[in-house]
Design a protein around this nucleic acid. Structure first.
Lengths: 153, 153
DNA sequence: ACTTTTTAGTTTGTCTCACAAACAATATAG
DNA sequence: CTATATTGTTTGTGAGACAAACTAAAAAGT
């Protein structure tokens, strides 16, 4: 959620005040998404297209694997890849071990754009975390990855 | 972006390795958005509708102010509020000081749902940050808010 | 006062994105 | 070798976003 008063009774909860971290993380995620969105917009990429490129940088997943990773319906992946393919960002590769399936791969164009956007994002995020000290940045990176890793299990 | 190799030249950059924090924050933000998304889905709310409710918890902004805060075109706000109003989550209040304008307010229904979802989110985020120690959670909350605050200036 | 210009919001038209259900083709189990 | 499951597409529907044209009201100029 978005504000301070998430704890209705506002009793200083015995264990810990969870509402503070909830707000902090929610706010932070909106800010990050906004930065990513603006970075993608420079190359006329929607948030989901941007995320797709990010995933494909070091993988050639099947349509199904993409659906799982993106938590989207398989039919949504069809459309997503159709549009990306139309823009020559990715291509479908017939799967050698399953004649029903495809793997999705960045085209050279897609890889170039992914690299360029990567730089764009790095600059903008760098600017954003400029308010932190070097030590704080390290800490934040560590904690962020630690939390994000949970999902991968 | 999404992986390790964001620094093209990969020289151990003199100042600091920004790619680690970029990846960490990006990954974290996707995870948080996913949690928020699933929480909203319980009440059949899209991410943007959820965010709208969060904002309206302690504000009654004009359409224009909503557009600014959500970084959306004003015409997008018209549709967003139309749909939310159709579901009796919010209502348009004629602005007393400007006969062209409206303020947007949660209905009692909307407020109740916002409260319930708040609890839902709190549980899920709590679960997510369960991997951290109490001290780490405090630190993360602090750093997250510190970074998020930048945008408000 | 009364035009001109801005501003707040809506309408219309067009795309992207997401889902669900029905389908085709292939793979796997019985 | 038939029955069932899986991979991906198609079709149809709705939310969500934008841009351009529009309406009504407010603010600025003169």
């Amino acid at each position: 959620m978005n504000n301070e008063t998430s704890n209705p009774a506002s009793q200083p909860s015995a264990i810990a005040d969870t509402s503070s971290i909830v707000d902090g993380l929610a706010q932070l995620s909106y800010v990050i998404q906004s930065v990513l969105g603006r970075s993608g917009a420079v190359y006329d990429l929607s948030p989901i297209q941007l995320r797709l490129l990010g995933i494909l940088r070091d993988r050639e997943p099947s349509m199904k694997q993409l659906a799982e990773r993106l938590e989207l319906d398989k039919s949504s992946i069809t459309g997503l890849i159709d549009r990306a393919e139309r823009r020559h960002l990715v291509e479908r590769i017939p799967s050698p071990e399953d004649r029903r399936g495809f793997h999705v791969r960045l085209t050279p164009d897609g890889r170039r754009i992914a690299r360029e956007i990567g730089g764009e994002i790095e600059r903008r995020i760098g600017e954003l975390v400029g308010v932190l000290t070097e030590a704080e940045r390290g800490q934040l990176a560590l904690l962020a990855l630690k939390v994000a890793e949970v999902r991968k299990v």
